[in-house]
Design a protein around this nucleic acid. Structure first.
Lengths: 338, 338
DNA sequence: AATAGGATCGTAAACGTTTACGGAAACCGG
DNA sequence: CCGGTTTCCGTAAACGTTTACGATCCTATT
């Protein structure tokens, strides 16, 4: 005898009543409910996930899809750990659990997601590493799975999203650099089809044009979004015919490598070349100190969760005032690098 | 009509046969199997997770339990991502999926695990952040859930584990430092009850004793295992009455902060104080270069997965030669810091 | 031609829940 | 004391699979 049946037998009560008691249904005597809850606690009973999910059609689980192998995502788990923390504080209010759906670097993300959805793994999904054209969005929309993306995409199916305000970042960094006398501004573009690179560079072009400047194509450096990628960029800069006098990094993972690489080729950030990037725990200890954009990852996670919940039938009415799409603000922290 | 029933109807075949065809059972005509597989592919059918799990009693999912909020785990950035990658290459061979079970920093890890297990979430579990005394091990053993720990524990229930070879690290670092003339050697001990700190420091004491030396209690510095923690240690070192001439870091996340902190208090690694730590993508770009221990995280993940599978009834015979418990070797990479 | 045995498939039970439905008791106002 | 309402609980169906069992057809052997 296992599961709810055992509990029911132990209490000499029908399993129906036990289930109702545990699920907080109204039509159960408060005294019985107390006894059931107590016995459940005592026997360590927790409803079996599969049985419950099969009957209810929902799992009580939210999935956060991310990709393993750091060349792809460009975000270390420092980034995600903090976001998770925020997401979880919201989910905990509704007894929802968060699991990370880990897509191997050897599997196609679209296939992976399809598999997880068809399995009925999660009630709602948070997608990261949003690509410029992302078939996952269409798939989820077609199957009407509640989801939200961390990052925009050209593929728009009306889903909510939250994205870092790369436009604002472009505005502020370009304005600052132009004001500082720079006219030849470079940009490091992470490999892959992530949308953020496009968004950022498009706005850069606009802002530059406002000042009668253009973005030199040979000042766009492609790199894998990790330390080694940043390191490699330094040499590209040095070897380019006419090096930029300033560099903007849209990723936070490149900067340590870039600093080191620049030092090797004899360029000092803030003196020989201006650097504007993203703040991070590691960046705090760079020398010269980094000029870069900062944001609250935990709050971002909270917003993600609330926005996702607002699209879910069972929770939607609890978050009526929530903004479904939002550019997440970043603030520029002055440093000595640019 | 949904699920397997739809598929069966579409093919005009019973659902039993469809299921058998999909699961590779022998008693099904090869031609029928081909048709079923084709139709499944075409209709995008994937067996519902809950139904299958309910009937089979297994989910096809391996859970990697980790804790969100970096103050606790002490493992940064690339660490988990790379381990995951290794784990997944093994699991993929058996059509098993890996998900990360994310325990919020606000929830008790023991409770969290119990909940996940009772739910029947995963067929096997990999535990990280193993504590010196860890009730999770007893719980899993009592319920005979296959699992492995990344890290040893004093709580021994016969489970397999893989742990970094902190003893070897202690031997090599102490020997090296003593040979270099150091007699006052400090150690940074990460906060929390993680077992690795104890293991390391115990062996340090033994090796020191071999040379007639002792570990000064006031040279043991506690720190949160992240950049800020390392930064704080620098000041503790400066302010201690008789500062150590060498410091060993057992975490890889502290080192950038420590470097920065030391610079502020006027101590240069390798000249004023020797530093031995752990290599990492960030550490590659420190100056002076770090003397530290390196390991292959991906291979570690592979070993974890193989060892876990060897304890699982369904896969055990496939990995007969696998070592169930292993100290994972690390090699010392020379740098200028110590 | 009769029979044994293999190949292939359909049927139905089972997995552990939740919940619609209905029934029994208790209560209440007139 | 009676009809109606409320409170509480038991019964059984349903969720989507897998699989033991048995039935049917076909082939080969005697």
């Amino acid at each position: 005898m296992k599961g709810i049946r055992r509990l029911a037998e132990h209490l000499d009560i029908s399993i129906g009543t036990v289930s109702r008691a545990l699920n907080g249904k109204p039509d159960v005597n408060e005294e019985t409910r107390r006894r059931v809850l107590e016995a459940a606690e005592h026997l360590g009973y927790v409803a079996n996930q599969s049985g419950r999910a099969l009957r209810k059609g929902s799992t009580g689980v939210i999935g956060f899809m991310m990709q393993t192998g750091r060349e792809i995502t460009g975000q270390g788990d420092i980034f995600f750990m903090s976001v998770f923390d925020g997401v979880q504080t919201v989910l905990a209010r509704h007894k929802l659990d968060l699991v990370a759906l880990l897509c191997s670097s050897e599997e196609d993300p679209d296939d992976y997601l399809k598999r997880m959805v068809a399995r009925g793994f999660a009630d709602g999904i948070i997608l990261s590493a949003t690509r410029r054209h992302d078939a996952r969005l269409e798939f989820l929309a077609r199957h009407s799975i509640p989801f939200i993306t961390l990052g925009r995409s050209l593929t728009d199916v009306g889903q909510p999203w939250i994205d870092l305000d790369f436009e604002g970042m472009a505005e502020m960094s370009i304005e600052r650099l132009v004001r500082g006398g720079h006219s030849r501004i470079g940009f490091v573009w992470p490999h892959g089809d992530l949308n953020l690179g496009y968004v950022f560079i498009e706005r850069c072009r606009i802002v530059l044009a406002r000042h009668g400047l253009t973005l030199a194509e040979d000042c766009i450096f492609r790199a894998t979004p990790n330390e080694a990628g940043g390191y490699a960029v330094a040499r590209q800069i040095k070897d380019s015919g006419e090096p930029p006098t300033a560099i903007i990094l849209v990723n936070e993972t490149l900067v340590t490598g870039l600093y080191h690489g620049l030092e090797e080729v004899g360029l000092r950030p803030g003196r020989d070349i201006a650097i504007i990037g993203r703040q991070s725990p590691q960046a705090r200890f760079l020398s010269p100190s980094l000029t870069g954009f900062e944001l609250s990852l935990r709050d971002l996670g909270i917003a993600l969760a609330e926005s996702l919940l607002s699209t879910m039938p069972a929770y939607g009415d609890l978050y009526p005032q929530v903004v479904r799409r939002k550019l997440w603000p970043m603030s520029l922290i002055d440093g000595d690098s640019g």
